[in-house]
Each structure stands twice: as C-alpha cells, then as structure tokens.
Design a protein around this nucleic acid. Structure first.
Lengths: 150, 150
DNA sequence: TATTGTTATACTCTATAACTATA
DNA sequence: TATAGTTATAGAGTATAACAATA
C-alpha cells in the first residue's frame, strides 16, 4: 500500500513546484537574475542585512557556494559586504541602493505575476493547502534528520 | 490584499518542496546519483525506453543538457542509446541491465524512505493536498503560457 | 522547411575540503 | 578548539545558438 499512497502526493508536489519554478524562473531570468541570485535579493529585501551564516541557512545555499553568488551580485553592484560590529569573524551582506531598487522592481511584480494563479484557488482551498503543506514539510524534515543521524 | 494572499501559499509550497528535495537529494546522493540522473533513471524505469524528446519533456531537461546527462549515465553503463525504428532522426534511450538493477535498488527504497512522511498525513489530508496541488499547478501552467505568449 | 539530437561556448551552481582570522 | 567566511578544485547542470542528418 505504501507505494500507491506515496507516489501521487510526491508527484503532485513535484509537478506543482516545477510549474511554479518554471513560471518563476522564466520571469526572474527576464529580469536579468539567476534563481539563486533572486533568492538572495528577496531574502535581503526589507532587512538591514544579515551575516553570511544566516543568509545561507535561509536560502539553503552552502557557505562555499554563497561566497560565489554574493561575489557575482556584488560585482553587479546589488549587494555589499560590511564588517559585523559584534563578531570580527562575521561579515554582513546587505542590499545597496541599487539592490533595493532591483528588489522593488523585481519582487512585487513577481508576486503580481504569480497572484492570478494563487487567487484562482478558493479562499478555503488556500488555507487547506498551506496547512497540509506545512504538515508534510515538518514530516519531511524529520526524515532528513533521521538520515543525517545514520 | 494580493501580497498577503500570495506569499504564504508560495512560501509553504517552496519550503515543503525544499524539505522534500533536501531529504530526497541526500538519499539519492548516498546512492551515487545526482538528482537529474535519478530523475532519468526513475523516468526510464518500467518502460521499454523512449526518445530524447519525450525524456526531455518528462524531466524538464532541455535537449542540450540532456545529451550531457545521458552521456554521463551511459559512461557509467546505466543507459544506452539505440536507433529509433520509426524515425531516423530520433534516438531511443533505455536502461541497461545494470541500469534496471540500479532502478530497482534505488527507486523502491527511495519511496520507502519518503513513505513515513507522507503517511503521517491523515488519509483525507493526502487527498486534499493532491487536489489542491493539482489545481494550483494548472493555474501556474497558465501563467507560464501567458508569459511565453508575450 | 521543420525537427531530432549533437556540439560548442560560456557561465552558474554545487559539493568538498583546506585555509585564515577571529572567538 | 571551534566558528565564520574565503579559496581551491573538480565536476555537473544550465541557457543558448549553430550544426548535421533526416523528415
């Protein structure tokens, strides 16, 4: 019974996310960013900046990779590094004025682009979906923990 | 109102998929495959093989990339190319005996690994989730079409 | 002319591990 | 010793476009 139960849910999750990703990535690339770059700009938007460590844990980008992605964004003038006042080992990453501009220019229109799809679900359907996705996520996180513990 | 509606659903979708991906990728890598490679092996499993074109459309890997991924799997002896009997331009990709073995060794255990997470949802919750995800996916696919048409 | 798959280019991301400087 | 970030390495995936063979 396990297989017949698991496959449909996982397949719909993957297909739905891929549909989101495809719509989203195409829109993001038209605005001249890669998906990880957008992820970082979106994470830094409306914040005073944050340490590499926190940025990495929020975006799920590992530290070695993050240095490279941040380098490329910095080279384009969208983010900048600053020394942490609290910890001499730590570096803060934050949006530049240009980065803020891109954030505003890119993030809200991106939501507006996605909105018609989300709003096509009935109100109760959205709430359901959020709740079920949260439950499944928590259960999946437990599986990751199990695996890591082996 | 649009932003407050859209963000939570999209965030839960992304977080849930990322939790899946993280659990799944770690498990797949332990078995010596990359995620796109697993995707191909899983797609070819229990089929007589299929043309590049179909394989690409099922896995969402574009043709230029697919040649490279298939090359690496072929170099490891997991898949092989064969001329299409129907169309001289077309190439069939199929699992080798070794590829079939890896499929069996990898796919079912992978489902078994994920099963506890999915089965932690109540029966009705799984059905709900599948239905809502399907609705959202269809709406997102329409957004992609809109974008492509511009 | 259109389509299938390959090749070529250039780049981004990825995992991993060694390294530095601070704590 | 442990942690934060950088550097180095090697490889995998990506977009894109030009190309050969076939339809």
């Amino acid at each position: 019974m396990s297989r017949a139960t698991v496959v449909p849910v996982i397949r719909e999750l993957a297909r739905c996310y891929q549909a989101f990703e495809r719509a989203s990535d195409a829109h993001i690339r038209r605005m001249g960013l890669t998906p990880p770059q957008f992820d970082i700009v979106a994470t830094l938007g409306n914040t005073p900046g944050m340490a590499f460590k926190e940025l990495g844990s929020r975006t799920l980008i590992t530290k070695g990779t993050l240095t490279g992605v941040v380098d490329r964004l910095a080279a384009r003038g969208l983010v900048e590094r600053a020394a942490s006042p609290d910890d001499g080992r730590s570096t803060i990453v934050r949006l530049t004025a240009e980065g803020e501009r891109v954030f505003r220019e890119v993030f809200e229109p991106h939501l507006a682009f996605l909105a018609p799809a989300v709003e096509s679900l009935p109100e109760c359907g959205r709430k359901d979906l959020e709740k079920r996705l949260r439950q499944l996520r928590e259960a999946l996180e437990k599986r990751s923990d199990e695996l890591a513990r082996q």
